[in-house]
């Protein structure tokens, strides 16, 4: 039961990550790969606060999320000034650079990771309580984003993605909209990081590498980029499939690459055969949101 609860928490956290990433790339059309680093910022900041201060956990999580937002604004404001295409490569550099920093600083625990994060809830109810929190937040995230993109705000985002020049010439401030979308998406990733930290009590820099970018991207692509529930489908599938292989009881030296091969093959197949994803509308109307 404990094991299933942990898997559930992990899936909920990844739903939050995938949904917020989808807001940024699927709806906002902002090509970034650095989502895991904002997850990391949320995780590290709230973890450090939990170790060194007596702040209540929710406050630590919010501060972590705030830091992720600030960092995302710094990145987006400098990269988007050049061009939207540049963001992709700048975000990659940002992620690698910050990870390198984390690995080399003493107070973040270096490459060995940050441990000793105090348990805030103890006893048998710990996992169920965290599961409830994570699931509620995941549902809230998915529906909040859905509500956002359905209303007038979403209409503006769609228009911006369709024709940015015409959009700006109608009086819309495309740059500030992009910054806001980016900051919201990354702030949500920071919250996911905070929950992760408090439940697992240990984080290491390896969890936030480029491979993680590919994994979250895969969840979004597989489920359907630019759809409200696509990221949910993607996150559940991608986290459930490796669990299924676990039952084959292969040795870890074969298991890990096998799982990797399955993921990457899935992505490649979808990229070419169904670029819009599982829930994506292959029709003409929403095509610009897909991975065409």
């Amino acid at each position: 039961m404990e094991y299933l609860g942990t898997i559930g928490i992990l899936i909920a956290i990844y739903i939050i990550l995938a949904a917020s990433y989808n807001l940024v790339i699927g709806y906002g059309g902002l090509a970034t790969v650095a989502h895991p680093i904002f997850f990391a910022i949320g995780a590290y900041v709230s973890g450090l606060l939990a170790i060194h201060t007596t702040l209540p956990p929710p406050v630590s999580v919010l501060v972590g999320s705030g830091c992720a937002m600030l960092a995302s604004l710094l990145l987006a404001a400098s990269a988007l000034r050049v061009s939207g295409d540049y963001l992709l490569i700048a975000s990659l550099g940002f992620q690698l650079g910050l990870l390198q920093l984390i690995k080399n600083l003493a107070f973040t625990g270096g490459p060995g990771g940050l441990g000793g994060i105090p348990a805030t809830i103890v006893g048998p109810s710990r996992t169920p309580v965290y599961l409830a929190i994570a699931v509620v937040l995941a549902i809230a995230t998915v529906f909040a984003i859905r509500a956002l993109v359905r209303g007038p705000y979403g209409r503006a985002i769609t228009a911006m993605r369709d024709e940015e020049l015409a959009f700006s010439a109608l009086g819309r401030n495309a740059m500030s909209m992009k910054l806001v979308i980016f900051a919201i998406g990354c702030g949500i990733a920071g919250i996911a990081g905070g929950i992760y930290t408090f439940y697992f009590q240990y984080i290491s820099p390896d969890q936030f590498e480029v491979l993680q970018s590919a994994a979250i991207l895969t969840m979004v692509v597989l489920g359907g980029m630019g759809t409200a529930f696509g990221p949910v489908v993607g996150a559940v599938l991608l986290l459930a499939i490796p669990q299924a292989i676990t039952f084959l009881q292969l040795p870890p030296s074969i298991m890990a690459p096998m799982q990797g091969i399955i993921f990457t093959l899935l992505v490649l197949v979808f990229l070419f055969l169904r670029p819009a994803g599982i829930l994506g509308d292959t029709g003409r109307r929403r095509r610009s949101a897909g991975l065409t």
Binding site: R155, T158, A159, D162, E163, L170, R287, S288, A289
Partner: peptide
Amino acid sequence: LFRSMTVMENMLV
């Protein structure tokens, strides 16, 4: 024009 939107949506932004 905003190609993935309806006429009214185009007008409303």
